[in-house]
Nucleic acid binder design. Structure first.
Lengths: 121, 121
DNA sequence: CTGATAGTTAAGCATTTACTTTAGTATCAT
DNA sequence: ATGATACTAAAGTAAATGCTTAACTATCAG
């Protein structure tokens, strides 16, 4: 089991490549084989498989081989980790802005002008 | 102006490093100078500045130099792009699951579970 | 069995990344 | 003016990344 930081590293790293994001987009519309994933991409099959390994390691995609075809699907809830991190940043930042708003409203309730220059920035 | 794909590349790439995420976390609690950002990190100051350049290029952070100190702050709405992409994937995937649920319910309404006993045969 | 399909393994290579050190340049306090 | 502070610029490096090609292994259809 990987720790939180490493999981986020792998997840964001996996999403940082347009081909890999393309694969995730394709897979969120339904499962696909490796060759199906490869078809729209301008690269060799081994390259696609390597991208796929990155996606699997990140927990975004799960694959399963039956016969000679490997079927790839979205790992449900795989994106949750990234989503959570982003939401935490947003709320921390928004809460801070609220406090700042309170502070400004309290300190200078009437001044929308710079008292030095008399200008509105 | 950068296109959508490149912006996502830069954003996710920027978030894929724990030091940079640490800086973003610090900055979402309020502005900081370069040295303040560097303090908790086990690396040289130039390294921190390089990370900062990645964050600026990604649109997550804005910096401004006054006198000899460069003040760094979160770029409001910088995370929106990543957030939007993730949400789009989630909804696409969830909608698909709904359809699949409909399909299963229609095709085999009685075979997955006995609604009386709750048992799976 | 034979050939085609689907994927795998391994090795190599150019580029990018994440640092480092060393040597600066402004700015500020005294 | 002098020294300390806060960066900045440049160059070098080890490791990671994103590919490639070539050769190989299963599986399936006829």
């Amino acid at each position: 089991m990987l720790n939180y930081q490493t999981s986020l590293d792998l997840m964001f790293q996996a999403l940082a490549d347009p081909s890999r994001r393309g694969m995730v987009e394709r897979l969120s519309r339904g499962p696909a084989s490796v060759s199906e994933l490869a078809r729209p991409l301008a690269m060799s099959l081994p390259a696609v498989v390597q991208h796929l390994q990155v996606l699997e390691a990140s927990g975004l995609v799960r694959t399963e081989k039956v016969g000679r075809v490997r079927t790839c699907r979205i790992e449900p809830g795989g994106l949750q980790l990234a989503e959570r991190w982003i939401n935490e940043r947003r709320t921390t930042w928004e809460r801070r802005l609220d406090c700042l708003g309170d502070y400004l409203a309290e300190t200078a309730p009437t001044t929308s002008k710079d008292p030095e220059t008399g200008e509105t920035p």
